[in-house]
Design a binder for these strands. Sequence first.
DNA 1: CATACGTTTCAACAAAAGTTGGATTGATGG
DNA 2: CCATCAATCCAACTTTTGTTGAAACGTATG
Lengths: 119, 119
Amino acid sequence: MDERQALAAFAALGQEHRLRVVRALVTAGPDGLAAGALAAEVGIASTNLSFHLKELSHAGLITSRREGKSVIYSAAYASLSDLIAFLMRDCCGGRPEVCAPAVAALSACDCTTGDTAHA
Amino acid sequence: MDERQALAAFAALGQEHRLRVVRALVTAGPDGLAAGALAAEVGIASTNLSFHLKELSHAGLITSRREGKSVIYSAAYASLSDLIAFLMRDCCGGRPEVCAPAVAALSACDCTTGDTAHA
DNA sequence: CATACGTTTCAACAAAAGTTGGATTGATGG
DNA sequence: CCATCAATCCAACTTTTGTTGAAACGTATG
C-alpha cells in the first residue's frame, strides 16, 4: 500500500458516518449487510449513505455484491490489514519495545485464540 | 478508545501533510523531530505546519516538549496502538480466519523479532 | 536589554466535503 | 407490462477544512 491509498483510506475513516459503516461491516463479518440495513443502523438518509458507500468503496475499504433487489456491502479485511501495516511501517526508529504494544493491542482482537465471540 | 477519539485520529491522518508528519515521527522513533525539521521534511510553511501539529496534538497522535529554542514532536505510539485496536474490535463476526491476517500484517513490522532495522 | 531565531497565533481568503430533495436505474411481483 | 421497492445519480446549497501573510511570543546570546 502506498501513501496515496493510505491517505484515501484514512480520509474515508475520518468521517462519523463512514466510520460507523465500516465498524458495522467489520463487526458483521464477511456476510456483510444490505444498504438498507446500514442506513438504519447508521441513521442517515439512503441518498446520503450511498454517497458515503461510494467513497468507502473508492478507498478500497469495502466491497459490494448485488443479491436480488438489495446490494450487500462487506468490509475489505485485507485493505484494513494493509492500512495498519502502512501506519506502523519502519516504526520506532530501531527500538522494538516502543511499538511492540501495537501488536499486542491488535492481538487482543481474540481472533487468533479461536474464540467465536470477542471481548 | 471511544468512537469520538478514533474519529478525531482518523480525520487527522486523512490529510496529506498530517499523514506525512505522523509517518516521519513514527519512523523517527521516540526521540522525535523539531518543528523546523518537520517543516523541511514535509515541505510546507512553518505557519501551516503549526496548524497541522495542533490538529494532531489535539487528536492525541503526537506529543511535544520544549528543548531550548526548539519544540520537539514525537509520535504517541500508545494512541496509535489504541486506534488499531479500535478499528479491528469485534471483527470478523466470529470467523477468526478472516481478520487474523491483520495481526500478521502488523507483526511484519519486525519490532517483535528484535531487529534493529526494518524491512 | 536589545537582537536574532524558531515557533505559534490571528484574521482573511480559497477550496473541499457533507447534506438534501428530486429524478433515474434495476429487480421483483401482480 | 405496469406498479412497487431498493438503491443510486445529479445539482444546489451549507458547512467545514486548509492555506497564506503579518504580527506576536518565548528563549537564547552578545
